[in-house]
């Protein structure tokens, strides 16, 4: 054994390495400058009493963290974020699956048109959707007027003024906005299932519901777990829809963590507290990280159990 002897790298391999690093460099700069640096700095700010301007000179240790955990409205925003995330994930993932199953039928005419229609909200600006939906669900909005015309209600339903209905509207609108992209994920999963399995089941006399239950859904489980992971994590960052549709109201009942952070970082009616807002940002980041780890573990388990089942089968 020749300890300490360096492996000889020929000229061609060295040049390849150099070129590889040259190509990686822009991505590295962008990642460090636009992702890693802000994350690191938000951790730094969270230990300072800082308004967002002037020097960082008032180190307060864990004081911001203690204040955050004592703050009633932080926990309210935390709770709201989880309610929204749970509602959004359940509604959007299940509705998108139903749509994907319908649109995966090759016999259905105009599939391309339907897919485009369902995908349109995804590419529409969220803030615009929020403003339009605010008018639709408003006291004298389209929904109330339509319900009055067909005789379902006499008095307008305060959709955005009642805390329960306001959250429901938020979840429904948020789900409707994202359903197109989740449907694409499901369609990808559906198209990965070999057609031979369906043909064999058909020969064995299985109907639609039986193939759905025993072939489609079990084989979709791995991608389903990934979809739930992605949907959960992205929905925890909801901001623009809440800002434009409910403004976090009535009386903070739909205020999510992102909106709470915004309110403190860019206060329009008080002194900005960027240090405090960064603390909440760090807590939100860590929460999302822990949830991602948990769901990631579930994805891994599902994939492993499917692989084991495949080997045994």
């Amino acid at each position: 054994m020749k300890v300490g002897k360096r492996r000889k790298v020929n000229k061609q391999t060295r040049n390849r390495y150099i070129w590889a690093y040259i190509f990686i460099l822009p991505q590295f700069i962008v990642f460090f400058g636009l992702s890693l640096y802000p994350i690191i700095m938000s951790y730094v700010y969270s230990f300072y009493d800082w308004t967002g301007i002037g020097p960082l000179n008032k180190f307060v240790g864990f004081s911001n963290y203690i204040s955050v955990f004592k703050e009633e409205k932080f926990w309210n925003a935390f709770k709201n974020t989880f309610i929204y995330t749970a509602g959004f994930t359940m509604v959007s993932v299940s509705a998108a699956l139903v749509l994907a199953l319908i649109l995966n039928n090759p016999k259905l005419k105009g599939i391309g048109i339907y897919r485009t229609i369902y995908f349109l909200p995804v590419v529409t600006t969220t803030a615009i959707i929020g403003i339009i939906m605010k008018n639709i669900f408003g006291n004298q909005g389209l929904i109330n007027e339509a319900l009055k015309i067909i005789g379902v209600i006499d008095q307008a339903v305060p959709w955005l003024i009642n805390p329960v209905t306001a959250m429901i509207v938020l979840i429904i609108v948020g789900s409707w906005k994202e359903i197109g992209i989740i449907m694409i994920y499901w369609l990808t999963g559906l198209q990965m299932i070999p057609r031979e399995l369906y043909e064999a089941a058909h020969i064995d006399g299985a109907g639609y519901w039986q193939t759905l239950r025993h072939i489609t859904l079990p084989l979709l489980a791995p991608i389903g777990a990934t979809i739930i992971l992605l949907t959960t994590v992205s929905s925890m960052h909801v901001f623009d829809l809440v800002k434009t549709l409910t403004g976090g109201g009535p009386y903070y009942s739909t205020e999510t963590l992102e909106l709470y952070i915004y309110r403190f970082a860019f206060a329009s009616d008080g002194i900005s507290q960027v240090g405090y807002a960064s603390t909440v940002g760090v807590i939100l980041g860590l929460t999302v990280f822990i949830i991602s780890l948990g769901l990631g573990w579930v994805v891994m388990r599902v994939n492993k159990s499917r692989a084991d089942a495949g080997v045994q089968g």
Binding site: N139, P158, I161
Partner: peptide, 8 residues
Amino acid sequence: SPLSLEND
């Protein structure tokens, strides 16, 4: 007006 509650 209840519109006061939902508009800026």
